[in-house]
Nucleic acid binder design. Sequence first.
DNA 1: CGTCTCATGTAAGGAGTTACATGATTTA
DNA 2: TAAATCATGTAACTCCTTACATGAGACG
Lengths: 195, 195
Amino acid sequence: MSLRYALLALLTAAPMTGYEASRRFQSSVGHVWHAPDSQIYPELRKMEAEGLLAVEAVEDGGRGEKRYYRPTEAGIAALKAWMETPLKYAPDRDPAHLKAAYFEFASLEAARRTLRDHIEHYEGLLEQWERQIYEVDSGTSQVLSQRLAGRSRAEHDRIAAFKRFAYEGLVARAHAEIAWARSGLRMLDGYSAST
Amino acid sequence: MSLRYALLALLTAAPMTGYEASRRFQSSVGHVWHAPDSQIYPELRKMEAEGLLAVEAVEDGGRGEKRYYRPTEAGIAALKAWMETPLKYAPDRDPAHLKAAYFEFASLEAARRTLRDHIEHYEGLLEQWERQIYEVDSGTSQVLSQRLAGRSRAEHDRIAAFKRFAYEGLVARAHAEIAWARSGLRMLDGYSAST
DNA sequence: CGTCTCATGTAAGGAGTTACATGATTTA
DNA sequence: TAAATCATGTAACTCCTTACATGAGACG
C-alpha cells in the first residue's frame, strides 16, 4: 500500500512519464521503498483510474504518445491523509538473523561467509545512502532540485532536512548491522580457535 | 522461502503437532521470522508431501488424531543446505523512513506522532528481544531446553551463543531506531519553535 | 551491425494478510 | 454459562518477483 504514496511523493516533484518515474524512482524514493517497473506501470494506471493522477498525453513524433502523470488535488489529499494516519509495521522477517540464530546447522565457513556477506551488503547500502546525503547537502539531486523550485528558502531547508534525516536513519542502521556482523565474526573466531 | 527453514529449525528441537508448532513459533523463531497459523499449516503439509517432514499420527481420544511432525533426514539436509547457500536480501521497503523523507506533507503533530509511534514500536520489540536474551541466559526457554537435551556441554554453549547473538543484533537495531526517532523529534522541536 | 536507452507494459506464480469455519474441552 | 484454549485448517485477496515482449532511435 505504500507504493502509491511513494509514487505520489515522487510525482509532486514534477510531472513525469511512467518511464521517467520508474527511472527516478530508483535514484530517489527507491532507496527507501524499492519497486520494479512491472509494479510501477500498473500502479500508475490504477491511480489514474482512481483519480489520484491526471495524465497529459503529448505527441511523440510518430511513435505514439508520451503520457505525463501529475498528482491531482485528490492525489495530494491522499498523500497528506496517509501522512496523518499511523503506520502499520510489517512483522519481523529477517533471514540474516534467522540464519544466525541457527548457526549450529551451518559449517563454520558458511557462517563466516554469511556474516561477511552481511557486512558487504550493508557497506554497499551505506555507500548509496551516504551519497544521497551528500546530494542533499550539495544540491546535486535532480529530483530534489525540481521539488524545491519555486519554494521559499525556509521550505528548502525543511524539505532537505527531512530527506537528510531519513537517510541518516538508514546510515545508522547500516552501521549497526555491520557492527553486529563483525562481532559475530569475532565470536566465530573463538570457536574455530578451540577446535 | 525462509518459512520452511524456520519451521525445520523449530522442529529440530522436538517433534510437534501443527498447533504446537504455530504456538511455539511465536515464542521462539517467530521473533525473527513471523508467520501466522494460516501459513504454517499449509507449509507443514507441503513439506510433508516433499518428504522433508515425517508424521506420526496418534489417537486423540475420540476427537480424531494428533499429527506429530518431525524432520526427516532429507529435511535436516535441506536445512543444512540452506545454511550453506548465500542469503537473498529483500530490497528495502521501509514505510517509516519513507514517511520521514516526505514529512513536508505531514502536519507537525502527525510527524511527531509517527516518530513517537516508532519509538514505542521499537521499545516493545526491545523488551521482547531482551526477554529472549534473558531466557537464553537463564535457561528458561522451553524450546531451547528441548533443543539442548542430549547434547554436549560445548554444544550447549555454542547453540545458546548463536541465539544470543541473533537477538543482540535485533536489540542493537531497536536501539538505533529509537535513537533515530528521538533525533527526529529534536529536529521537529526546532521547527515548531520557529513558527 | 549490435547494444543501449527510451517507452510501454503483460503474464505467471509465490508469499503473505485477513477473515472465516468447526467442534471439543477446560477454566472462570 | 461464557470465554478461552486445543486442534485444524480454507478462501479470497493483495503485494511482490521474475521473466518475457515490442519497437523506435541513438551511439559506437
